[in-house]
Amino acid sequence: MEKSVCKEHEKLYRELDEFIQEVEGDSSALIEVLHKAQQIFGHLPIEVQEHIAEKLNIPVSKVFGVVTFYSLFTMKPRGKYQIKICLGTACYVKGADKLMDRFKEELEIEEGEVTKDGLFSLHAVRCLGACSMAPVVMIGESDFYGRVTPDEVPKIIRNYKNRGGK
C-alpha cells in the first residue's frame, strides 16, 4: 500500500519535471509551472513548491510569494466537486448571495472550505460569461446551472452525492 502511494507520487513528480524541462530557460515560466503542478497534484503543498524552486533555481520564498498572491493557486486540497457560485455583478443583482448562503447551509461549510467527506468545496467566482442566465453555478469544469433558485440547491447537491466518489 505504502509503496504504491510512493510510486504514484513519483509518477506525478516525473510528469511535472518533464513539463519543467519543456519550458526551461524561460524566465517567466514560474506561473505556468505552478498551473501545471496544480493540475497534476490538485493543490500546491509546500513540498511541491520546494521541488519547483529547486528545479527552476529560484528561492522558495519567491515561489511561495507567487502562490499566495494569485487566488487560483491553492495550498489546500479542494473538494472532488468544486462548486463555483458566480458572484459577478449580474448574478449578484439576481440574488446570487442567497444561493451562496443556501449552499453554505446545506453543506455546512464556509466559502473556501471542503466538506468532511472531501466531496464538495465551495468557491465564489466572478462572471462566468453567462450573465443572461444569472444566477449561475458551475460545478467542476463543465457542469453549468443557470437561473438557479435557492430551492434547487438540495437537489443539485444530491445529484453529485449519488454519484459519490466516482
Binding site: S27, S28, A29, L30, I31, E32, L34, H35, V66, F69, Y70, S71, L72, F73, R126
Partner: peptide, 20 residues
C-alpha cells in the same frame, strides 16, 4: 496565462505577471 488576480489587468502589474 493569468492566475486569478484582478489587479493584473493593470498594465504594469500585468507586465510583472508575464515576467513570472
Amino acid at each position: 496565462i493569468g492566475a486569478g488576480a484582478f489587479v493584473c489587468g493593470e498594465e504594469t502589474a500585468l507586465i510583472n505577471s508575464i515576467e513570472g
